[in-house]
Amino acid sequence: MAAVATEWERAVLSLLDDEYARRILVAISGEAKSAGELADICDASEPTIYRRLDRLGEHDLVEAQQALDPDGHHYKTYLASVERVSVEIDGDGVVIEIVERERDPADRFTELYEGLR
């Protein structure tokens, strides 16, 4: 079974080649953070952060969550949804394996149910 990397896998690999994308993933691997916090942590401008977050989100590596600030306003936080990426090379070719973080069933329930409405 010759494994041909899909479009998605190629996109993920090229994203991981990006310094800021990697820094963002590291920063949000454990807890969700807002774009503003990420700009500080990664020492980048907010537009830079947003561009990376958009691309990471497009390829399902990051998920956005709603949060409330003390004044009751909504803002978005982001959480990495990928836990491990491995590249396996053998006689059949290259196999890229992406292991996603186990998600909280309550969040999954919310996402699926809101998709139904």
Binding site: Q65, Q66, A67, L68, H74, D104, P105, A106, D107, F109, T110, Y113, E114, R117
Partner: peptide
């Protein structure tokens, strides 16, 4: 309980 937590965590009235 799952639905209630979905509401609390995501601030989702439908949940």
């Amino acid at each position: 309980w799952l639905a209630y937590r979905g509401y609390r965590r995501n601030d989702s009235a439908p949940m």
